[in-house]
Design a protein around this nucleic acid. Sequence first.
RNA 1: UCCUCAGUAGCUCAGUUGGUUAGAGCACCUGACUGUUAAUCAGGGGGUCCUAGGUUCAAGUCCUAGCUGGGGAGCCA
Length: 462
Amino acid sequence: MKRKRVKELLANPVTGEKVLVKGWVRTKREIKNVAFVALNDGSTINNIQIVMELSAFPADLLKDITTGASIGVTGILEPSQGKGQSVEIQAAEVILYGRCDPETYPLQKKGHSMEFLREIAHLRFRTNTFGAVMRIRHAMAFGIHKYYNDRGFFYLHTPIITGSDAEGAGEMFHVTTLDLNDLPHTKEGGVNFEDDFFGKPTNLTVSGQLNGELGALALGEIYTFGPTFRAENSNTPRHLAEFWMIEPEMAFWDLNDNMDLAEDFLKYLIKYALDNCREDLEFLNKMIDTALIERLEFVLANSFVRLPYTEAIKILEAVDRKWEYAVGWGRDLQAEHERYLVETHFKRPVILTDYPKAIKAFYMKQNDDGLTVRAMDVLFPGIGEIIGGSQREEELDKLTARIEELKLPLKDLWWYLDTRKFGTAPHSGFGLGFERLILFMTGMSNIRDVIPFPRTPRNAEF
RNA sequence: UCCUCAGUAGCUCAGUUGGUUAGAGCACCUGACUGUUAAUCAGGGGGUCCUAGGUUCAAGUCCUAGCUGGGGAGCCA
């Protein structure tokens, strides 16, 4: 007999039908003559109620049906006599696949703290919250591919291992096959990377952007979606050492086109979640963040504020308030400033543009004022910077001058500069932190709880 | 990395000014209950008080260092 997923069973219940379901027991309630088992198979947040007449099953089997045990149930789908569910399965046959010792199984039917669940990340998928978060995470990954595919963007796989240390986005993890206890040395005493696997020092990528630009300047519109690694000693609820990033890059698009894309893209994903993850969102709205759905609908319904950095500074300088970090043109905005603009002043997402060039990366397009670059950061309530992007500098002399000014290794970037030498074109792109998107979509408050296996300083368990 | 708070039963936490045998709720086990909904009711078992030093007649409680975790900041996505 073919097994049915609980999701399809509940979506399309045919009472009187004989069905087979398989899954994990969430709870069992036993009264005098009958036991009620809530069974979950991961396909949906909802459980199917299994009704077992105590007289019809061996006592040993009933004893083994505990929270966490895996079973298969064959029976007739019937309208439920009780409240709380419309249908239930009157069990005729129950197979026990795996026992689950209730004395040692760490998950209980009661709620657990996120901190505790993080210590048992291998089992936390079995909770309602992590089931919901992981299903939404999947839906967002799928929605991202669908969004770009439907718009003619090509999914470009940029390398995980890079020989370039010019990406300029923080500390990198080294990749080597050298024996760290017996390193080969050069005459000068340094490590001799000639003997290493690639014949030179290599690292894990901190961004696919530079490679993405190469693809865009031939394919037109591309996007990357892959893991990214930062060896920063960041200990916050918003940072991971290994995270996923989406980086679209578009030839012949300027900064305004770029902002239009960022806003449309984020709204598409919000709508996709509201349309496709309703039950999981409702669960999270009830248990994790009661303002979640309201906030998603609000962001979907309202346009983002677009504001040049210089105007933002004026707004912040006019506020009668003592900042922990001083506000002034040329200084980078701190979390408190961004939060004020998004959460207090505008009360909606804000896209800040045209930052001073000194506080932004070398590849950003220089404005005619000689002071600012065509950067854009999308700031979200509660999350802060969710997207960072820019129009890229496509003029070879300006880009070269900037690289030299910042004393970056010009010769290592010869391949990047070649795109400006041969048929250069204006182009733009941005990076969206996938886990930060999931934070926003789920109302979860710690980024370690929206990725299956978080990697953070001093933690690579599981 | 800096600031700050915390670490006591499987989980969440209480534990007074340092003072006899360290408590509660939930979970678990046993029993009761004619349809439950994180079922309910009664009973029972369960402790390296984070680790290492120190102060003291006496430390879960005070001091020092470390480890782990939370929150905030920086770096950023």
